[in-house]
Write a protein that binds this DNA or RNA. Structure first.
Lengths: 146, 146
DNA sequence: CATAATTGGTTTCAAATGAAACTAATTGCG
DNA sequence: CGCAATTAGTTTCATTTGAAACCAATTATG
């Protein structure tokens, strides 16, 4: 009968995830003027395939194509990402970090890692592993029908 | 050195939380034309104090005052929430569900609960408890310095 | 091989967002 | 008391968002 939003798992997850994202965003926002989508795309390009299409990035970053399109335009405008024609498909383009983009990514990453550690410093290794495991399971579950 | 967004806890939390929220939103969106903020405010008013001020609702729903203001206006417009002057403070107002608001909430709640069960049906009782525990710990940790 | 259907990506448009400014009422403090 | 600082809530404004329409290239199908 009675319902408490504070014990409602979807709500709790959402609130905690947003607080975490918010904290983290400050790291690359304040010091490097990157927003969350930009940071995500940089991270994907820095660690993904050699030259990725927008669709591949969208897939890897769990972002929709409209956001990718706009984020790429901004990153390109800042000189952090470079666009080339895609040889095997005239509709697509291939993206990769520029030297400046790589340098910025390398500059931001340590601070991001530090922030992450601090955010989750209340967990011991076992708890962190357990959270990963639960997220794995939940993701797989959602995949299985969505 | 190498960094993988897929094992980055803030990213994983964010993606999973959004997928969950999205699924759940469909329940009250499609059938009852409520968006997430509206649902949250209804839930707070249905289960919170007798008559709450906007600030109290904002606090309880983890939403900022601008969103509360706009959400209240919409709910009031739909006849789901009723606003009264606040006797002890002329700046504030007190809100409560109307009969229609309560009826809508009662109509939505079972579907919400059903959806929640389905979303987390991959977890046994122990895992659910564990996730709650980890979220408790993490929330307390964030509270302690933010 | 033509043409329909699909896919990659961008643009448009209306709505949502949130920081900052604002109004109005309340509380502190000399 | 009287004025400064704070608090409750709304509005403004510039930006972000995402669904749907769109264009262009590719693939499937008769």
């Amino acid at each position: 009968m009675s319902f408490n939003l504070n014990t409602f798992l979807p709500y709790r997850l959402s609130v905690v995830a947003n607080r975490i994202s918010q904290q983290l965003a400050q790291v690359y926002q304040k010091n490097h003027n990157l927003d969350i989508p930009q940071w995500r795309v940089l991270a994907i390009l820095a660690n993904g395939l050699d030259r990725m299409t927008a669709t591949q990035v969208a897939q890897a970053a769990s972002m929709d194509k409209v956001r990718i399109s706009r984020t790429m335009a901004r990153l390109r405008h800042k000189g952090l990402v470079e666009e080339k024609a895609c040889l095997d498909d005239g509709r697509a383009r291939r993206y990769q970090l520029t030297v400046a983009g790589r340098a910025l990514y390398d500059a931001v990453l340590p601070a991001v890692r530090t922030c992450e550690s601090r955010l989750f410093s209340c967990f011991d290794a076992e708890e962190t592993r357990e959270l990963h495991r639960l997220l794995d399971k939940l993701s797989a579950h959602l995949d299985s029908w969505q």
